[in-house]
């Protein structure tokens, strides 16, 4: 299946190609996967921040109007944009590696949220939770040794 070359250039390419269809950027899947997880976690956090503000400024009225009010909040929109960018990166990562490899490492999300909460908002992280974070990181490290069959140069 050969896609139309002109369409290929006009598209947001996966990965980026020049006019002759050659790849001009090889985004390493490692960074794509980590970036996707980081952006998804940040997106959720920003959406939550924006919703807290939108709810406090909502006017009484029909439910659809209120949903629109929440969705059009600039902070919520920014969060959605961050989350959407993360999704594009995730699609790229999925195109590069086995899904049985990638999906479990999304557990790093919990690690990012816990450490982000600690360092950004000074939230307390219990010793048991640190232990859990360590175990997840250990598991993700073990995953790196679970076969490279689909990794591309």
């Amino acid at each position: 299946m050969t896609p139309d070359a002109r369409l290929e250039v006009r598209d947001l390419p996966l990965p980026l190609r020049n006019t002759t269809g050659q790849r001009i950027l090889r985004a390493p899947w490692e960074w794509a996967a980590l970036g996707a997880i980081l952006l998804a976690a940040s997106g959720h956090l920003i959406i939550k921040l924006g919703l807290a503000h939108a709810v406090s400024t909502a006017l009484p009225g029909p439910i659809l109007g209120r949903i629109l009010h929440y969705a059009l909040n600039p902070v919520v929109l920014a969060g959605l944009a961050v989350y959407g960018t993360g999704t594009l990166l995730w699609i790229y990562a999925v195109s590069q590696r086995s899904i049985s490899f990638l999906y479990p490492i999304t557990a790093l999300n919990y690690v990012i949220v816990a450490t982000g909460g600690k360092f950004l908002f000074g939230e307390a992280v219990s010793q048991g939770r640190w232990a859990g974070i360590g175990i997840v990181v250990l598991g993700v490290t073990l995953m790196q040794f679970s076969g490279q069959e689909e990794k591309r140069k």
């Binding site: 919990y110 010793q127 048991g128 859990g132 073990l142 076969g147």
Partner: peptide, 27 residues
């Protein structure tokens, strides 16, 4: 469905990650 190969090490990694997630949410 995708005919992916899941080596033993990947099952171990999945198990370890799952244990980590359980420990995180119990604390």
């Amino acid at each position: 469905l995708l005919k992916e190969r899941v080596p033993a090490m990947r099952w171990i990694a999945i198990l370890v990650i799952t244990i980590g997630v359980v420990v995180i949410s119990r604390n």
